[in-house]
């Protein structure tokens, strides 16, 4: 893949997150380029999800800055925004490791709820909507048609549109969650283990989807994933985190052969670590 270098969309500087005595993220710096897929890998408990929580306003970082160079709205400091404004104003949207859909609502409703802010304005904060004014009905119809055309069909969910999301199989729920995040119209999409629990065919479809989103729609993607067939195949750039620190960064090929990464994943005892460090 020969892609021209692009500008930085998100730059994480000296991010530290402490919970009491525990340092979950320790002085982490990372750049996320615009229009690319950036993978984040690391052993369990390395602080990957904590990074997402800091990024999307669910945690307030102890120190450090998260600068987003928004393509149309200028520079934003994500660490200062509450979580709903991160999604609404900064358009940084995430999914969750343990799927968080609105289970009793239908698939279509899940997607429409994600456009709450747009539709709420169109309904003139319910007043136009209460009287069924044409403006609101038009906006709602457009939203549904847009969802249908863009996401229900692309994610192969159209025949399930009126089913309760919580009753559907796991793999499909993963797709719905990604679809719902896309309905917020993100500039940066943060996916927390989207391939967890998917079978190989579904993983392959996920790869295709991610490449489409990034290549055709220009959405930058930040991807936490353990499934190497996904991360290594789609990522342009990979950051490796262990114990809250970045231990390596680079192309998939580079990261794959980095001794530090191999050590973090496979584990080595002290002695080998010393010799390994000497030879590296």
């Amino acid at each position: 893949m020969s892609k021209t270098p692009t500008s930085t969309l998100l730059s994480v500087r000296n991010l530290t997150m402490r919970f009491g005595g525990l340092t979950a993220i320790d002085d982490l710096s990372l750049e996320v380029p615009a229009g690319r897929i950036t993978g984040i890998i690391g052993p369990n408990g390395a602080g990957k999800t904590t990074l997402f929580n800091c990024l999307t306003g669910f945690y307030k970082p102890t120190t450090g800055t998260l600068r987003l160079a928004h393509p149309t709205r200028g520079e934003m400091r994500l660490e200062a925004l509450p979580s709903h404004r991160v999604a609404r104003d900064a358009q940084v949207v995430r999914t969750f490791q343990n799927i968080r859909l609105f289970p009793k609502m239908t698939v279509l409703e899940n997607l429409i709820v994600a456009q709450h802010n747009v539709l709420q304005r169109a309904s003139k904060f319910s007043i136009a909507g209460l009287f069924k004014l044409p403006g609101y009905r038009q906006a709602e119809r457009e939203a549904i048609e847009r969802d249908d055309a863009m996401w229900l069909q692309r994610l192969k969910l159209e025949h399930l549109a009126d089913d309760a999301a919580g009753d559907l199989p796991y793999g499909i729920q993963r797709r719905i969650e990604i679809g719902r995040a896309l309905c917020v119209d993100p500039v940066l999409l943060c996916l927390d283990e989207p391939a967890a629990g998917l079978n190989p065919r579904e993983s392959a479809e996920l790869n295709e989807l991610l490449l489409y989103l990034c290549g055709e729609m220009g959405i930058a993607i930040l991807l936490i994933e353990h499934d190497m067939s996904v991360v290594m195949n789609v990522s342009d750039h990979i950051g490796v985190i262990s114990y809250g620190r970045k231990i390596a960064e680079g192309t998939p090929e580079h990261v794959k052969h980095d001794p530090q990464v191999i050590k973090a994943y496979l584990g080595e005892d002290e002695e080998e670590e010393v010799t390994g460090g000497a030879t590296a």
Binding site: F102, P103, Q120
Partner: peptide
């Protein structure tokens, strides 16, 4: 719909910018 979404999952609501 936002009320119902809130009943279903408050965290997800925030993540959707609500």
């Amino acid at each position: 719909r936002a009320w119902e979404a809130l009943r279903e999952d408050e965290i997800a609501c925030q993540a959707m910018g609500m």
